[in-house]
Design a binder for these strands. Structure first.
Lengths: 235, 235
DNA sequence: CCCTTATGCCAACAGGGTTGACCTTATCTT
DNA sequence: AAGATAAGGTCAACCCTGTTGGCATAAGGG
């Protein structure tokens, strides 16, 4: 069994599994993402992942110390995809907006995986790369370091926090999600104006807005705040 | 076993358990919060909760359809505590700030429970009461309904999202959390300036700020944004 | 071409949610 | 007051989970 987990770089012999597939961290993580999508955020089990790979569950422990370490590897993969899908232009506002949406988008592209990993800080290389990029944008725009660090902090936490929250509803089975969204058109819309005047007065607006994410609005607030703190004029 | 879960209000006979305690939804939820605090966010199990109540695990299914429904009841309890700890003053800005901190605070008072429930929308009475209160503040301040609904949405999602995120680190065992916070003084602080110039330049500031929550800063951004959209002057 | 050992497989363990059958006792009816 | 009813407790069992010790086998260095 797995006394030492051999780091990916040091692997020399790759013996094919019973069904012929040759394993690697990359293949395992990719397959885990697929299993998550198909079976939900609680559906990633060692046995199921093993079956999807055509391998025994215990084989996974040759690559990851446990399901927890696999989970962190999945999170780092999402961060990597976010960074890969982003390109800097030099315009701090456009860049920060794009990076925020890239992170948010990479996580929401795999809602079940996002739910599992968004609240974890891995400290892995690709996560660090994202942090460096954000700080680079803010300092490059001319923010004083203390302000840059404060905005960086709000930015990364906000992006991950909303990703996790929104992944929660997106990861629901289609019918359950529809039911949730209908709640704004039924349960909330039917509250009597005597007991709940404000909900009753805005029921139609709520039903239209609540099924969407609040992340874009929150992101714009952050950009607005940042622009107001730049020493030189924005444009 | 539990074909029908009898609603709390309709309960008539309360037979004491083997150890003499008389059960109720309230006692079960309170005990669940205690078990969560003592055993962590993944430590709430039917068997353990049963033991803590001095009852058979299967008894829980007389009160809740499953662990999932119990989880939602715990979430609603936190919402109720948030609302109870809050009092309106009539000053929209102070009220909204206080309500945000009340929600955030109620969840973080039970980080293990917050982790479990923050991303769940229960649609239960006390959650609805909070929604009504928020909308009341915003509409009372004079915001047009579409703006009020937009700000409401950002406000509630932001509060819950940050609560969940921060609960994640707070719920870690003390030593694990210390290790995480130290990472900003060690791993990040040691990154070479050649490869990570921006992190290296702000390492000291990061080490000081990152162990704290970004929620207060994000909340102020939202208040700032809201104030700028009021028809009449703020004060 | 053989030997070593990395890497895959098998079987088993403890602990998880959940359920069907059963029993006991609180409350209602007469 | 006694008896009937069924709510609400208990018990044992189901299948699932992560994880591990021992074993087998084939990849690749010498």
């Amino acid at each position: 069994m797995a006394k030492h987990v051999v780091p990916e770089a040091a692997r020399r012999r790759r013996r094919p599994t019973r069904t012929g597939t040759v394993l690697s961290e990359e293949i395992i993580v990719d397959t885990a993402l697929r299993v998550l999508r198909e079976h939900g955020s609680t559906g990633l089990t060692a046995r199921r992942l093993g079956a999807a790979l055509g391998a025994d569950p215990s084989t996974l422990y040759r690559y990851f110390a446990g399901m927890d370490e696999l989970t962190r590897a999945i999170g780092d993969e999402l961060m990597g995809r976010a960074l890969d899908s982003w390109t800097a232009t030099g315009d701090w506002r456009a860049d920060l907006r794009a990076l925020g949406r890239a992170i948010y988008g990479a996580y929401l592209a795999h809602p079940q995986a996002a739910l599992l990993t968004a609240s974890r800080v891995t400290g892995r290389p690709r996560e660090i790369a994202v942090d460096e990029a954000i700080l680079g944008i803010l300092r490059g725009a001319g923010l004083p370091d203390p302000v840059a660090v404060r905005v960086y902090h709000a930015f990364i936490d906000q992006s991950l926090a909303f990703a996790a929250l929104d992944a929660g509803s997106l990861a629901l089975a289609a019918e359950a999600r529809a039911q949730d969204e209908e709640m704004w058109q039924t349960a909330y819309a039917r509250l009597p104006a005597e007991s709940h005047p404000h909900i009753a007065a805005t029921a139609a607006l709520l039903a239209r807005r609540m099924p969407h994410s609040a992340y874009p609005a929150a992101l714009e607030m952050l950009l607005e705040h940042t622009a107001a703190r730049l020493p030189a004029p924005d444009a």
